[in-house]
Nucleic acid binder design. Structure first.
Lengths: 344, 344
DNA sequence: ATGAAAGCGCTAACAC
DNA sequence: GTGTTAGCGCTTTCAT
């Protein structure tokens, strides 16, 4: 049998569709008598009526639907917590999210935007898996908010992690443990990866604040995976004893995983001989390492929530100044005091 | 200004809305003259017309939208490739996916199903992050397909990984390298985790096929993270030399990560002294370990594609027999020949 | 306190 | 080859 429509409820309850509509959409408070309301509700229940959102949307011009367009957030294990944050807020307010991953393909992105606009989404979130500055794609509605990226012209509300502060926090953690020779194992030079430079700035400022002169030899780079971190760390461990770092701040947790491997191969224990701090607090990596890795967390969940709150109009946000979301340090077991100098 | 409607295009092109509709929806092939078609398209382009999918859906009773409801696939780093597979097929056919993670909460699940049904999704995919047998939730439309789980009553099409075969493949890999004393480091006993028993069956059958008697001492369990794998492996390495395994098949990659740690602590090299095979081919774990881990891949992408193909009616699937999707072995560097016995 | 009726933007018979 | 028209299922004025 076909799905029940509002007219079916109306005739079952002996009222008009207008009455049913008012009762079921909750706008009936005083207007409709309690008896009628009960009768309508009972009838709806009995015949298993469920409203047709498409018809409602056409009439109200609101779909209670938010489009979330990203490069590869949903399909990749990096930033899923952003979706969790966005989804939670949406659900709490009765919204659904329509998700499209474009795989960073411009044509797909164009189509996705058009499709979402055609579906009349009430607002849109444009998200990136990694913090970036992006040219604002054409066709995005005014109600778009940027998540984990910012439009080059800062024309829309946006939130990104406070990477600079995170770099400072990581470095400070090492300084507080007594280290002075602290290396930064950076990502490859790439203007798109704004996190790299920002974290480096934070690192330098923490060093300066502690009165330690940054040694350019201790700023090295590698690919952003374990092999890159391992190669960079191996190079570092090759330095003469008095210039060798006693602690390493890695651009991300996977590189830190490589740093562990390099240390192991060199016969060094973490953290007794070498302290390591990562970045990202990557699920399934940071906490599972041996020893568990002290790292800086990316505030994915919070950014996701914030973006959805702005999208739903629950929170005002000015365009022009991306919100910098704090990156908390997560203390585990990879940081200790520096080893006694061999000479001692 | 308000969004252009079809009527605007019609008057701009000097035709009726019916003509515009036919032209723009492609059904105009022979019916409308080429000149008129060109005129309509030009007008649509000029005034920036984009069809309103909500109105179209109300009229056609099809939304070109698929609901995908899962426990925590999108927000968790385990099974995102399922979404990639489903999304790719959807996109290739002009469908959008509406995604809801319920966090495995029954009430949320109920609401999500109701919301998706209300949105008139054309079909639904009910997915789980881990292979499970589940009671089919109420309210799912007939067009629902199950992904990485199967309804207890096998009342719907479903696809799950062929875990048994995967267990066999992993064990065979080790047997082929010359091992005879092969341990299975299993997940905790839990009827919900059907993969555990299935992989164990595969393991036993590979052993039997090779004529080696399974040693019950070599079937141990641990929590499904690195610490569980580590503890279980430590126990195994405690066995007297002649009963100690030379190879370990782990329930998942994280446990294999723990097995690596245990081996290291015991002064053993992987694979020279101990071979290890994992399961899941978890992104960011398996390939990043030192040495990179040989493992069995879960066919997430393929299952996601299959489920969407069935949902879109592109492929027929009978209810009653879940499709077992093959789990290919991924060869990396953690398997080698067994060490020479100390006595040699 | 409730009902009649218009109309959201589109598609698909059917008419010409 | 193109236009007229009747809805899809709902909400919301406006009447009563």
């Amino acid at each position: 049998m076909a799905r029940a429509r509002m007219a079916d409820v109306a005739s079952a309850a002996g009222v008009s569709t207008a009455t049913v509509s008012m009762v079921l959409s909750g706008a009936a408070s005083t207007r409709i008598s309690p008896e009628t309301q009960a009768r309508v509700r009972e009838a709806a229940e009995r015949i298993g009526y469920a409203p047709n959102s498409v018809a409602r949307s056409l009439r109200t011009q609101r779909t209670r639907t938010i489009g979330l367009i990203s490069d590869t957030i949903a399909t990749t294990p990096f930033a899923g917590r952003m979706l969790a944050g966005a989804n939670d807020v949406a659900r709490e307010h009765g919204y659904l999210v329509v998700l499209v991953d474009t795989d960073d393909d411009a044509e797909r992105e164009r189509q996705a935007i058009a499709a979402l606009v055609g579906q009349q989404v009430d607002a849109m979130i444009y998200a990136r898996m990694w913090h970036r500055v992006v040219p604002a794609p054409a066709g995005l509605p005014d109600s778009t908010v940027f998540l984990d990226c910012r439009p080059r012209d800062d024309s829309r509300p946006a939130t990104v992690p406070d990477e600079r502060d995170g770099g400072t926090a990581a470095t400070l953690e090492l300084i507080a443990a007594g280290h002075r020779r602290i290396a930064y194992v950076d990502a490859p030079e790439d203007n798109e990866v704004v996190a790299s430079g920002l974290r480096h700035e934070g690192y330098l400022s923490a060093l300066a604040g502690a009165g330690v002169t940054a040694d350019p030899l201790l700023h090295v780079r590698g690919t952003t995976d374990a092999s890159g971190g391992r190669a960079a760390t191996e190079a570092l461990l090759t330095l003469p004893a008095d210039r060798r770092p006693t602690a390493i701040f890695c651009f991300n947790d996977r590189m830190a995983m490589g740093a562990y491997a390099a240390a192991r191969r060199a016969g060094l224990e973490v953290p007794a001989d070498l302290s390591v701090v990562g970045y990202d607090d990557q699920q399934l990596v940071a906490a599972e390492l041996d020893p568990p890795l002290t790292t800086v967390a990316l505030p994915h969940y919070e950014m996701g929530r914030w973006a959805m709150e702005v999208a739903l109009g629950l929170r005002r946000a000015e365009a022009g100044v991306p919100l910098l979301m704090p990156c908390p340090i997560i203390r585990r077991d990879s940081v200790g005091p520096p080893p006694e100098p061999a000479s001692a």
